[in-house]
Amino acid sequence: MVVAMLYGAAAYGILFFGKYEMQSVVDQAASAALRVDRTRYTADDLSGQVATIANTALAQGWASKSQRLRAGVEITGNECQVDGSGDFLSCTLSRDNKTEPMVPQLTFGFLGKFPPMPDTMSAEATMAF
């Protein structure tokens, strides 16, 4: 039982740190859009440029993370989008933790799969520009 508790604590530590890294990447992508020089673009082009810069920053930040964390995530270049009103940028990153678990689950007889893990992990950042 003590070994199971230690393994569970370590597994959740890895899981929470992975979630922290995901949140860091989407936060950096959203903040990259704040550095867009608004005077260089027309109102119609600004939203597209903001989304492009944020998606580029997200892809670069995500590529620097470990392979274990990146497994289960498909970067499409469409993770950061500007809403219909053109006022908000939203960046979202989701990880499939069911098919590509960050930490393997163990089977402990009556406990079944241990420790219980979420099927997906996601991080989101939204900002007004």
Rank of each mutant, 00 (worst) to 15 (best):
A71W: 02
K65S: 06
G86D: 01
Q23H: 03
D87P: 02
V36M: 10
F88D: 11
E124V: 15
A33Q: 01
Q49K: 15
K65T: 12
E100H: 13
V82Y: 03
I14T: 10
S24D: 11
L58D: 00
Y12F: 13
D96L: 03
A32I: 07
L34W: 11
W62Q: 03
R68E: 11
P104S: 04
V2T: 12
D83I: 11
G84W: 07
V26N: 00
A59M: 11
V25G: 00
V26W: 04
C80G: 01
M5V: 15
M5G: 10
A63R: 11
R68V: 14
R95W: 00
G72W: 01
Q67C: 04
P104D: 06
S31A: 14
D119T: 06
L6Q: 01
Q81T: 15
R38M: 13
V2H: 07
F16H: 08
Q28A: 15
R40V: 10
I53R: 14
E79I: 08
T120N: 13
R40E: 14
I53N: 06
A4G: 07
G77V: 04
A57M: 05
V3M: 13
G8K: 06
D37R: 14
D44I: 13
I75D: 04
P116V: 07
P118K: 12
Y20D: 13
M22K: 01
V50F: 03
G72Q: 08
K65F: 07
G18E: 00
A123M: 08
K65G: 01
T92Y: 07
M121P: 00
D27C: 05
D96C: 03
A11N: 00
V26H: 01
F108T: 10
C80Y: 02
G84C: 08
E74V: 14
E100T: 14
G72E: 02
K98Y: 12
A32Q: 01
A30F: 04
A10M: 14
A125C: 08
F110R: 14
N78Q: 15
L93K: 01
T120V: 12
V2W: 08
G84Y: 04
F108L: 15
N78Y: 10
P101Q: 07
V36I: 15
G61P: 02
G18Q: 00
Y41R: 11
K113F: 09
L93C: 04
L15N: 06
M5T: 12
M5Q: 05
M102V: 14
R38D: 12
I53K: 14
L111C: 03
T99H: 10
T52Y: 07
E74A: 14
R40T: 13
A59D: 12
K98T: 12
A9W: 05
Q105N: 09
A11E: 00
